[in-house]
Design a binder for these strands. Structure first.
Lengths: 232, 232
DNA sequence: CCCACTGTTGAACGACTGTACAGCAGTATT
DNA sequence: AATACTGCTGTACAGTCGTTCAACAGTGGG
């Protein structure tokens, strides 16, 4: 029985592979333990590696966390975006798919929010994390701007300012995602999707005066055009 | 010169006073140091008190933080609400004042957001903090629902579902507040206010189909009534 | 003036933290 | 099979943390 097959105490790995493994372990740790997961020893043990290896492959623990932040944020964004662009349909339908993906169970897992809180908390003290936030938030908004631009290209929709529109939509999405993550009982994911679709609908109708490009500053009581909402 | 007036090493205070002083010190600590401020020694020294006193007046450090959370959240809400209700004007004007107060410099101080992150982080592990969040969020939404109800009472505005409307508006406000707190350069406070006012405008025009009470599910391309936006 | 009451102190405890670095041990090459 | 290279370990360091509790010392009543 007792084979006593002597296993090597560790296996070497090329730096790139090890870096990625550490990033993955960091994400798992932050998702499952929140702030308590932010520990070189915990992350190391989860990656099957000694704590000293972290500062060997990264300048510091917070640099590893920053790398994990960038990895997760970009991965999620691409995943949602691909899910949205998958179908060749109208801009409005792609937005709808984007919203649905944003409130899918995968995105509402409480652990994800806990990890996000750790990233946000570190922004105040760590320049690297702050830089990652700025990069990823700009990328996020760029995706929204692109989809809103497509929407704007369709006929019958009054021209609107893309940048502030994307900012508002991002805020609405974030606010809903945060509350849904903190308390799943407040509203159902489908309600969040409907509220975002409503926002797009109002935008299409020119019901957001401050977003209307040029045109009368009269407050928008008179809409730019009357449009058919369905099949925009 | 050297008067050598012997000061007493400490002064007794009634529990209620001491509790409040500790709460205040906690808030200052969390605002200025974020997560690093969450320390019995730091809070105690800021309150001019030994660390042991915290667990003497509170069941635990996290109970003190929960109390501080409730104190801050309710204080801010009442402050904003009073500022909004100060003037006897239309519902729309009160909402406008509410938005302006929400993005006043006092609310956008970065320290405030850092404190909030600490509270949110503790929700996952601490039932007390979670309970405070639920209470204060419900109170927040109740204020919004009340103002939206007043708005709905005005003539010429299609009836809408109060609760989901308040949820959406809260999400928009939170999302804008968070991004403004993290990166003050993304947009100006006035833009955030304008985006919230736009949302109210769209609501007043019935441009949010899923929020319309009963009525045709046709998508809302035809508004309930045409209303004058200014001086609603 | 002294006493009893009790708010308060501050040291002690055990456990935790990120980082540094001397040396061990896989691995590929010779 | 020996060697050089280097990824990796694991301990040491100097801190940090929340909580406990015996003892101290303000304070008001007698």
């Amino acid at each position: 029985m007792a084979q006593a097959q002597r296993q090597p105490k560790f296996r070497r790995a090329p730096p790139e592979v090890r870096r990625e493994a550490l990033i993955d372990a960091t994400l798992v740790c932050l998702r499952t333990h929140g702030h308590a997961g932010l520990s070189a020893r915990r992350i190391g043990s989860l990656a099957g590696v000694s704590p000293g290896l972290i500062t060997h492959h990264f300048p510091s623990l917070s640099a590893l966390v920053a790398a994990a932040y960038e990895s997760l944020a970009m991965s999620l964004l691409h995943s949602i975006e691909q899910h949205a662009r998958e179908a060749k349909t109208t801009a409005r339908e792609r937005l709808r798919r984007f919203f649905r993906a944003s409130f899918a169970p995968r995105l509402l897992e409480p652990g994800l929010f806990n990890a996000w809180l750790v990233f946000w908390s570190m922004m105040a003290h760590d320049a690297r994390v702050r830089a990652v936030h700025n990069r990823t938030y700009v990328a996020y908004r760029a995706v929204l701007e692109s989809m809103l631009g497509d929407l704007s290209g369709c006929g019958g929709i009054p021209p609107f300012k893309l940048r502030p529109a994307a900012i508002a939509l991002a805020a609405l999405l974030d606010g809903l995602w945060i509350e849904a993550s903190m308390n799943a009982r407040t509203f159902k994911p489908a309600e969040a999707v409907a509220l975002c679709e409503d926002w797009i609908n109002a935008l299409s109708e020119g019901a957001f005066p401050s977003l209307l490009r040029s045109r009368s500053r009269s407050g928008g009581s008179r809409r730019f055009t009357r449009v058919s909402v369905r099949r925009g």
